[in-house]
Simulated assay, not measured.
Amino acid sequence: MAIEEPKYTVLEKTPPFELRSYAPMILAEVQLEGDLDEASSQGFRLIAAYIFGQNQVSEKIAMTAPVAVEEQAVKSAKIAMTAPVNIESNAGQWTVSFVMPSEYTMETLPKPLNSKVQLRQIPAVKRAVITFSGFYNSQKVAEKTLELEEWMKTKNLQATGAPKFARYNPPWTLPFMRRNEVMIDVRD
């Protein structure tokens, strides 16, 4: 299933590290408390509910396939799934976000029915990224974050935000085929 991902260009590559320049994007996000797993699954469910139709809209929205469209009793739109699901922590508070398909603007995205789901425009940004496969847990994410920070030091890259953890695959994906990333926004 081809899932749209945020658009970016690779500025530098030293596997497993990359320096990327991302195009502006719109996020649907929720803020939650708890640990990584709790926040991840609860946030995923809340935002998935939004993109699967819990939104206010009075017209059909073109899909960026492959999401099935079914008629709802209440007029609603399904929004194509994108990857990755981003997770960032701020002392036990988590922000879980999905990047919205690039065809949408803040004006054309249907408004979420759940007030916990917020839409936010992100300007173009540079990010240092480390990619890894397998299962994730808080310790593995912390180790990969440390590796990324060490690489950033060797490149004289300055962080401008907290690390973000991104996962690209559904839970049933075999561990060796999973794609996970830690991303840190860096000064231009």
Score class of each variant (00 low, 15 high):
107 E>N: 03
155 K>D: 09
68 A>C: 13
11 L>F: 08
40 S>G: 05
143 E>N: 11
165 F>L: 03
74 V>P: 02
163 P>D: 00
129 V>W: 07
122 I>Q: 13
64 T>F: 05
187 R>N: 11
15 P>V: 04
104 Y>M: 12
146 L>N: 11
98 F>Q: 05
64 T>N: 10
91 A>E: 10
65 A>Y: 14
138 S>R: 15
85 V>Y: 02
127 R>G: 09
110 P>R: 10
63 M>W: 15
118 Q>L: 08
145 T>A: 12
81 M>P: 00
101 P>M: 10
125 V>Y: 15
126 K>V: 14
28 A>L: 13
120 R>L: 06
106 M>C: 05
126 K>F: 05
68 A>Q: 08
121 Q>C: 12
146 L>R: 08
14 T>D: 13
168 Y>M: 01
106 M>N: 06
154 T>L: 14
167 R>W: 11
58 S>T: 15
20 R>F: 09
185 D>H: 01
164 K>Q: 02
23 A>P: 03
131 T>G: 05
81 M>G: 01
47 I>Q: 04
125 V>W: 15
48 A>H: 06
97 S>T: 15
77 A>F: 06
183 M>K: 11
98 F>L: 07
142 A>E: 12
141 V>R: 07
55 N>R: 04
10 V>D: 00
97 S>D: 07
27 L>W: 07
18 E>Y: 08
133 S>D: 13
18 E>P: 10
14 T>V: 09
113 L>M: 09
7 K>N: 07
96 V>Q: 00
129 V>K: 10
51 I>C: 12
141 V>F: 10
152 M>Y: 04
91 A>I: 14
1 M>P: 13
183 M>R: 00
7 K>G: 07
94 W>Y: 13
36 L>G: 05
105 T>N: 11
176 F>P: 08
63 M>E: 01
158 Q>F: 09
69 V>D: 04
165 F>Y: 03
95 T>I: 01
186 V>Y: 06
173 T>R: 06
90 N>W: 15
164 K>C: 00
161 G>C: 05
137 N>V: 08
68 A>F: 05
76 S>D: 14
58 S>F: 14
24 P>W: 11
137 N>E: 09
54 Q>N: 06
77 A>G: 15
20 R>T: 02
81 M>Q: 08
16 P>S: 07
156 N>S: 11
78 K>T: 08
152 M>F: 02
42 Q>N: 03
122 I>E: 15
18 E>N: 05
157 L>V: 15
143 E>L: 14
6 P>L: 10
36 L>D: 06
164 K>R: 04
64 T>V: 07
134 G>W: 13
15 P>L: 14
110 P>Q: 04
163 P>T: 11
114 N>S: 02
107 E>Q: 14
171 P>R: 14
48 A>C: 12
46 L>Q: 00
43 G>W: 04
38 E>R: 02
129 V>A: 04
134 G>T: 09
166 A>S: 01
66 P>D: 13
122 I>T: 13
70 E>Q: 09
104 Y>P: 04
166 A>T: 01
34 G>Q: 02
179 R>I: 12
137 N>D: 07
152 M>C: 07
68 A>E: 15
91 A>D: 10
21 S>W: 02
145 T>L: 02
166 A>G: 06
90 N>C: 08
117 V>W: 00
54 Q>L: 13
155 K>A: 13
19 L>E: 07
125 V>Q: 09
178 R>Y: 02
181 E>G: 04
72 Q>A: 10
15 P>K: 11
